[in-house]
Computed example of a mutant assay.
Amino acid sequence: MDSPTPNVPDLDALWDYDHPAESERRFREFLRAAPDDGLRAETLTQIARAQGLQRQFEAAHATLDQVELMPIDDRPRVRVRYLLERGRVFNSSRQPDRAVPLFGQACDRALAAQQTALAVDALHMLAIADSNQALAWNLKALALAEASDDPQARCWLASLYNNLGWTYFDRGDYSTALAYFEKALAERAARGEETEIRIARWCIAKTLRRLDRADEALQVQLELLAQINRMGETDGYVDAEIAECLFQLNRPEEARPYFGSAYQKLSQDVWLVENEPARVERLKNLS
């Protein structure tokens, strides 16, 4: 049974992960009205997370240094969030060896305090930072979330199914990956999360292509493209997969403009350029 946390405002409701600067502004506004040190400290942990997402790593550590000096020893939830966010900043700044023990401590403390959702978060971060053990950490997180009666813990299910899908995908086990991506889609659909539904369908289609089912994959990606166009938006990842499907189907001339469009968009993606330069170069070469 998960331990309830009465009368604690839902700080997570202030998050817009796609716009961390705006999220930071909201947290700072909330901070000014926070009634006690515990809530102020917890809010500061989320400000640090927003700073980390903006790649302001020194500022994030400085914010967490403030938390460390505050009286939070009798507030296990705040201590867990402090450990989580310190670990996230280290991991995002390419220091996973410093992040892993912090995530481990966060998980242990969260379990001791019956804060299951935070324990799942810590396990999911261990899977990212300790990539050699990603499968084990993700499966442990999934077991914890599936067994929980805490809605916040169960909210992790779709993300965990997705993460497990990618873990198996990276291992070349595309059939198992597909099964997990389909579970993720079902969870997203049950919650009516339209953006996440599109992402889940994209993952399924990419996996279908790897299973030599490029015709099916192409149909899904074209449906996603039409949907995105109706919204007046663009998506380089969809363009890239359409290109790869056409290329796999021996239609290179049809693929070329999609490769070009994908390169134009994704070459502006800082994370992708830093972490998958060969992928970006392939888009350029085939456009």
Rank of each mutant, 00 (worst) to 15 (best):
W137R: 01
R201H: 11
C245E: 11
D173C: 01
Q56A: 06
R98Y: 03
Q115E: 08
S148F: 00
E68M: 03
L69F: 07
N7L: 14
D36A: 11
V100F: 03
K206A: 13
E146D: 08
S131N: 10
R28A: 15
E216I: 02
A217W: 03
A240F: 11
P9M: 09
A143Q: 10
L111V: 09
A205S: 14
V8C: 03
S267F: 08
T176S: 03
E274T: 04
R188E: 05
R94F: 02
Q51G: 06
I242Q: 15
E182W: 14
M231I: 06
L123P: 02
S3W: 13
V8A: 05
A127N: 01
Q56F: 03
R26C: 15
L144E: 02
L64M: 03
A255C: 12
H19N: 15
S148T: 00
A226C: 12
P71I: 09
A106R: 04
R109A: 12
E223Q: 12
A110I: 08
V270H: 07
R209C: 04
G38Q: 00
T234Y: 15
A33F: 15
P76W: 04
W166C: 04
K183Y: 08
W166D: 07
I199Q: 05
D149P: 00
V120I: 03
K284Y: 14
R88Y: 11
E58P: 10
W137I: 00
L139A: 05
L31Q: 03
A62Y: 05
Q133F: 00
T63I: 07
D235K: 13
E187F: 10
E216M: 03
M125D: 06
E223V: 09
A59H: 05
D97I: 05
D235F: 14
T63E: 08
V238C: 12
D150R: 01
L118E: 12
K265T: 09
A226S: 15
E216S: 05
K183E: 05
L44S: 10
R188I: 05
E24W: 14
L83C: 05
P257K: 02
F247K: 08
V67L: 05
E187H: 10
A122K: 07
L83W: 06
L142E: 09
S261Q: 15
V220Q: 12
E58M: 13
P101W: 02
W166H: 07
A200W: 12
L208G: 03
A41R: 08
I228T: 04
F259A: 02
A262I: 01
